[in-house]
Amino acid sequence: MTAVETKNTESIQYPRRTIERAERAMRCSPFQLQLFAAMRSQSVVLNTIAGESGIKREYTHSPLSELAAENALLWLIQVGLLRREVDGQGITDGFRLTPLGRQLVEKWQSFGGKLPAPTFGDRLYNAMSRWFRLF
């Protein structure tokens, strides 16, 4: 297991396979590291990620529809990288990083500030994981 340090100096233990799956999902996502870095300090709402807004903020490489962006974000929630923001009224359209997501963002920011490109095997494995999750 790998420990993750939090601001409260507590460590959270994650199995190696969990970290590998999360890294693969993040690399295969349509998002850039800039989006995840923004989510470290604040909630990011869906309409700033989708469409031309996402490109202007360097959150995505190409414009995504709201549906495509939300589906990709929901997969990252299932993997454990993100969580939905909640207010007094219930779930909002904002997203934030989990402690696991923070660990990966810090790792990749220290390695040059870009997400590593996924391999063909990464994309295939990630797609199969998403597909089998549906059943």
Score class of each variant (00 low, 15 high):
F31R: 03
F31G: 00
Q32M: 12
A37S: 14
A37I: 06
A37N: 13
A38G: 10
R40G: 07
S41W: 12
S43I: 01
S43Q: 10
S43K: 05
S43E: 12
S43V: 03
V44T: 13
V45L: 08
V45D: 11
L46V: 08
L46I: 12
L46M: 09
L46F: 00
N47R: 15
N47V: 14
N47H: 15
T48D: 13
T48V: 12
I49W: 02
I49P: 08
I49H: 03
A50L: 02
G51D: 06
E52H: 12
E52K: 13
G54M: 09
I55H: 06
I55N: 05
I55V: 15
K56N: 15
K56G: 07
K56I: 03
R57Q: 14
T60W: 07
H61R: 15
H61S: 14
S62N: 12
L64N: 00
L64C: 01
S65D: 01
E66C: 08
L67D: 14
L67P: 04
A69Q: 05
E70Y: 07
E70G: 02
N71Q: 15
N71I: 11
N71D: 11
N71E: 14
N71K: 13
A72G: 00
A72P: 04
L73W: 00
L73F: 07
L74H: 12
L74P: 07
L74I: 09
W75S: 05
L76I: 02
L76M: 10
L76D: 01
L76T: 06
V79F: 05
V79P: 04
V79M: 02
V79D: 01
L81K: 09
L82E: 11
L82A: 02
L82I: 09
R83M: 14
E85D: 14
E85Q: 13
V86A: 03
D87K: 05
Q89P: 03
G90C: 08
G90S: 08
G90L: 03
I91Y: 09
T92G: 04
T92F: 03
D93P: 00
D93W: 07
D93M: 11
G94T: 06
G94F: 00
R96K: 12
R96N: 11
R96Y: 03
L97A: 04
T98M: 01
T98D: 05
T98I: 01
L100G: 06
L100D: 04
L100H: 08
G101F: 05
G101H: 07
L104E: 06
L104F: 01
V105T: 10
V105S: 08
V105L: 05
E106H: 13
E106K: 15
K107M: 11
K107E: 13
Q109V: 10
Q109D: 13
S110M: 11
F111H: 13
G112H: 09
G112L: 10
G113D: 05
G113Y: 02
G113I: 06
K114P: 04
K114A: 14
L115G: 05
L115R: 01
L115D: 10
A117K: 15
T119Q: 11
T119Y: 09
T119P: 09
F120S: 15
F120P: 12
D122V: 05
